[in-house]
Amino acid sequence: MTAVSQANAQVQQANSTTLDAHSREFLVFSLGSEEYAVDILKVQEIRGYENVTRIANAPDFIKGVTNLRGVIVPIVDLRIKFHLDKVEYGGQTVVIVVNVGERIVGIVVDGVSDVMTLSPDQVKPAPEFGVTLSSDYLSGLGSLDDRMLVIVDIDKLLTSEEMALVEHSAS
């Protein structure tokens, strides 16, 4: 009897550790009233929105480039890209600097709330219906109590052709 319960406990422990191993941490940010999340390992730093030099003839969601300690970094406003109604630049507006492949890109968001750990069973597959935000760029939907987090595959999103951040051979 004791041996069995011991074994069960071990299995459970093993399960929970494997769960832990598969859980990932996400940085949660808000765009308007919606909540989004990116893999925390992609995030380099968070800074204020300031001093952006406009780039001519670029899509409107590319705000321009800024100087990040001597490195020229493009700044993308995801609120414009996702067609949000209110796009304001204030004290709360922050830039999440992410590393995408070899590149550094800053994304403008309305605010950063917290860092959350999501286990695989909390991540639901993304529905295939996005028009503005194609489900190709989502790695899933995170559900946490009654909150829904849109987990963005930032690599795919930022290197996609429609973001016009990366030179594609076709162009």
């Binding site: 030099t53 780039i55 001519a56 003839n57 480039v65 493009p74 550094i104």
Partner: peptide, 20 residues
Amino acid sequence: TNYRKVAGISAATILGDGSV
């Protein structure tokens, strides 16, 4: 390095006030 070729622009630089 982090962006792409921009028409009419060859490169960028950082000015004395830190802006690009």
